[in-house]
């Protein structure tokens, strides 16, 4: 696999802090997403993964720090403005429009675009990735299965023709087989269309296998970063995120081992 590390970053977060009311969700997150790469942010429930993506998309305003996309500051911008600049998101929990047809859901993904012909071509393209969306084009999105809704959510985000695609837990609630399929297509989208991808996941094994670079987030802070392949080899990551046993000298598992990264 080629290392996209040297590419200049398309997205840079510097010391971003964000909170829901009094509850700080991310405490000074810095990360770089190189152009054309797949970057993953791993972390447990409540680590702040979704908050990072919400802050990038402009749904949440950061209290401190800066976010630069293609060299321009985008923090505290209107979400619509951010979509127009080339960042779109398939949010956590899919969030399709349940009473709109599948086709209209896709059209809403392209709301900020006015190039009709290109939009029509992009609909064909996403339907080639996920043929079920063509079969169900006229059905209400609320009637799709969870996996199909996830496919729709990703496709809808692609319809904005983004340079950077944010994916929030695409594996949530899906069968392992379906998750594998979706990740394979995510990788294909990245390689074929050159879309940079920032992927937030709990399924660490699959995410590290798919991504080029990984960040590990705990309690709102980045605690580890590096090429995904290297991260997957680290003992701590293996034990706490990949669920592989750490066998001690005496051949027993050390149950009381504390995780200490700082």
């Amino acid at each position: 696999m080629s290392e996209p590390m040297p590419n200049e970053p398309i997205l840079t977060l510097a010391n971003v802090e964000a909170a829901y009311g009094a509850v700080k969700a991310i405490r000074g997150v810095s990360l770089k997403v190189p152009k054309g790469a797949i970057v993953t942010v791993l972390g447990a429930n409540g680590a702040g993964k979704t908050t990072i993506l919400k802050t990038i998309s402009g749904i949440l305003d950061p209290q401190k720090g800066s976010i630069a996309f293609k060299g321009e500051a985008i923090e505290r911008r209107d979400p619509a403005d951010i979509v127009r600049r080339g960042i779109s998101q398939a949010p956590e929990g899919r969030e399709v429009f349940p009473l709109l047809s599948v086709r209209n859901n896709l059209m809403m993904g392209a709301y900020t675009r006015s190039d009709r012909d290109q939009v029509a071509r992009d609909i064909e393209l996403v339907e080639s990735y996920f043929p079920i969306l063509k079969e169900r084009a006229d059905q209400d999105a609320g009637l799709l299965s969870g996996g199909q809704q996830q496919m729709l959510s990703i496709s809808r985000a692609l319809m904005a023709n983004p340079d950077l695609l944010l994916l929030d837990e695409p594996s949530l609630g899906l069968s392992p087989k379906l998750t594998q399929e979706i990740f394979a297509i995510v990788k294909r989208i990245n390689r074929e269309r050159g879309v940079t991808i920032l992927l937030v996941e709990q399924n660490a094994a699959l995410a590290l296998a798919t991504a080029d670079i990984g960040y590990i987030l705990e309690l709102g802070r980045i605690v580890m970063e590096g090429p995904a392949a290297e991260l997957a080899e680290k003992d701590d990551v293996k034990e706490f995120y990949l669920g592989q046993k750490d066998v001690g000298v005496r051949g027993q598992r050390r149950w009381k081992k504390k995780k200490m990264w700082r």
């Binding site: 998309s57 749904i59 979400p79 619509a80 403005d81 951010i82 979509v83 127009r84 779109s88 998101q89 949010p91 969030e95 399709v96 429009f97 349940p98 009473l99 709109l100 209209n104 859901n105 809403m108 993904g109 709301y111 900020t112 809808r156 985000a157 904005a160």
Partner: peptide, 13 residues
């Protein structure tokens, strides 16, 4: 769309 899911509408721009 925005009446069915306002958050998603924001995400779509």
């Amino acid at each position: 769309a925005m009446s069915q899911n306002q958050l998603a509408a924001y995400y779509m721009g």
